[in-house]
Amino acid sequence: MKKIIATTVCTMCTAVICAQLVWLSVDKQPFAGTYSRNFHQLLTALQNQAALAYIPVVTAGVSTERRFLLKAISTHAAAVAVPVRHGGFGLHLQQSGYTDYKRQAIGLSYGRTLGDRFSIGMQADYLSEVIPQYTTAATVVFELGCLMHLTPQLHMGLHVFNPTAGSSQSLGKSKVPAIYSAGLGYEVAPTFLLSVAVTQETDETTLAKVMCEYRIIKQLSLQLGMSTNPQLNSAAVGITLRQLYIQLSASYHPQLGFTPATAIVWQLKQRQ
C-alpha cells in the first residue's frame, strides 16, 4: 500500500511539474545576465556554461526553490566554479522531490574563451530518478553553449540541453527531451541590461521571455521577467555584500501560484 501511495503521489507531482518546463528549475531558466559580459555570475553560468570563461575567482553557491509552494517538488542545488587559464571548470549538484521520490543531477562543466568576443562551454549531466524500494533509473546527457559579444553593449547566447535526444533515452518512464534556447542582451547603460530569450523543448510550445536587470546601487539590483507558454512573471532582488551575493526571487503562474527561490553565492576576494 505504501508503494502504491508513493507512486500515485509521484505521478501527481510530475503532472504539476509538467505545467512548467520540467527540466528547467528556476536556476536553469534564463536570467537577463545570461546574455551579457558585465552582468554574468555563477547563477548565469548554470544556464550557459560558456559564462564559466568569465568568472575570475573561485566561486561557490547554493540555491533552493519551492515550486508552486509544494514541498514535495522542492529543488535544492549547489555549484562551484574554478577558473583556469582561458576558462574555468564547474560542478553542479541538484536534487528535487521528497523522501519517497527524488530526481537528482550531477553536472561537470567547462567553459573557455576563443578570442576576445567568443566563448564556448559544455557540461555532462548524470541524471537519476529514485523511488525507494520500488525503482531506480539513470542516464547521462550533455549540454552545450556559446556566448558572442557582438559589440561592447550587444551580446548573444545559444544553449542546448541533451542535443542527442532519442526515443531510447529516458529516465524511468519519462523521455529526456532536448531543450534549445537562444537570447540577446543589450546593455542600455552600465547599470541597465535588457534581454530577450526563446526556449524550445521537444514536443512543447515555444517559451518566449523578456527580462531586465537594473543595478540601483552597487550593492542592490532588481530583476524582472515575463514569459509565455507557460505564462510566468518573475522578479528578483540581488544584494551584494563584499564577496557575498544573495538573490531572493519568485515567479508566478496564474493557475499554479508562486514559486519562491533563494540563492547565496560566495567568491574569493580578487587580487588587486
Rank of each mutant, 00 (worst) to 15 (best):
V176S: 07
K3D: 14
C146V: 01
I216H: 13
S251Q: 07
A263N: 01
S221W: 03
G145H: 02
C18K: 14
Q267C: 14
L248D: 00
V198Y: 01
I217V: 14
L193S: 01
H149D: 03
F161T: 02
I239M: 13
G90Y: 03
E213N: 05
T7R: 13
E129R: 02
Q123A: 08
I73T: 07
V80D: 09
T135Q: 11
M12K: 15
T7Y: 10
I264M: 09
Q123V: 00
Q47N: 13
I4A: 13
G185L: 01
T240M: 07
L144M: 12
V80E: 05
G61V: 12
G257E: 12
H92V: 10
V16P: 07
E187H: 12
T151G: 06
T202W: 03
P230V: 05
G90Q: 09
D125Y: 01
H159F: 07
Q94W: 09
G107Q: 05
Q247M: 13
R242I: 08
L241I: 11
V196M: 00
L171D: 03
K173W: 07
Q123M: 05
P260G: 09
W23L: 14
H92T: 06
A79C: 00
Q49P: 12
S181V: 02
Q219R: 13
Q41W: 15
G61D: 04
Q247T: 13
M226T: 13
L144D: 12
V9P: 05
V130S: 08
L171A: 01
A124L: 11
L24C: 02
V57R: 12
P56Y: 11
E213R: 06
L147T: 09
Q247I: 10
A78I: 13
G166A: 10
L42A: 03
P30Q: 11
I120D: 01
H159E: 11
